[in-house]
Write a protein that binds this DNA or RNA. Structure first.
Lengths: 98, 98
DNA sequence: TAGTCATATCGATAACCGTCGATATGGATT
DNA sequence: AATCCATATCGACGGTTATCGATATGACTA
């Protein structure tokens, strides 16, 4: 999941529930249960979204006993946003091609 | 479509064909036909994707006779990427909340 | 005006995705 | 070992979306 994929990245962001989860664990570690408590969706749904975010490398996981704590990978966000900007928003970047 | 919506933005980016279109008209005006010629999808499909990109404010349109020329709105890209970074990737931005 | 070309829209189809309840897994507790 | 709790996975269902062929729209041309 270190590989950077602008499509995968965009797909991961393209859901309101996921963006809410990202916002929740933006700067702190949260267990799945804590995330569920703050949203109006079930635990399986949250687990599913966390899996999507994991596949995109957008969250870090820390297992501890029977708990799993998730936290947004802000560095990854910065890198991926930068890639998008480079790919689509920069004038002087025409030499590299996909 | 001046309103900024991170979900709409991400959804617009969350498709390979659309990202290809964006790349094609990243720094030049292209007619729909020219875009179709460079992709392996039909004209209605390209028109559909252009509509999605238009709704997200990600392309500018210039009508000229019977042609419509599209070009990626790079400023919009910059703004939207910046918003994402601010929302999710910045450490020192916890006062504002959605 | 008839015809052609470029684009948009419509309706249908298939694939994808978000959500749920049910269940499996596996650590902690008694 | 039996139970409980936290999380992941499974299967199903419904809604969304990408794609297509057919058609409408509307501009230019002869």
């Amino acid at each position: 999941m270190t590989r950077s994929d602008p499509i995968l990245f965009a797909k991961a962001l393209a859901d309101e529930t996921r963006q809410r989860i990202m916002k929740l664990c933006c700067c702190r570690w949260l267990s799945v249960t804590e995330i569920v408590e703050q949203l109006s969706v079930t635990q399986p749904t949250v687990s599913h979204h966390l899996a999507v975010l994991r596949e995109a490398g957008l969250v870090n996981v820390r297992e501890e006993g029977k708990h799993s704590f998730y936290r947004l990978n802000q560095d990854r966000m910065t890198v991926c946003c930068g890639e998008l900007r480079t790919k689509f928003a920069s004038e002087d970047d025409k030499t590299e091609t996909s």
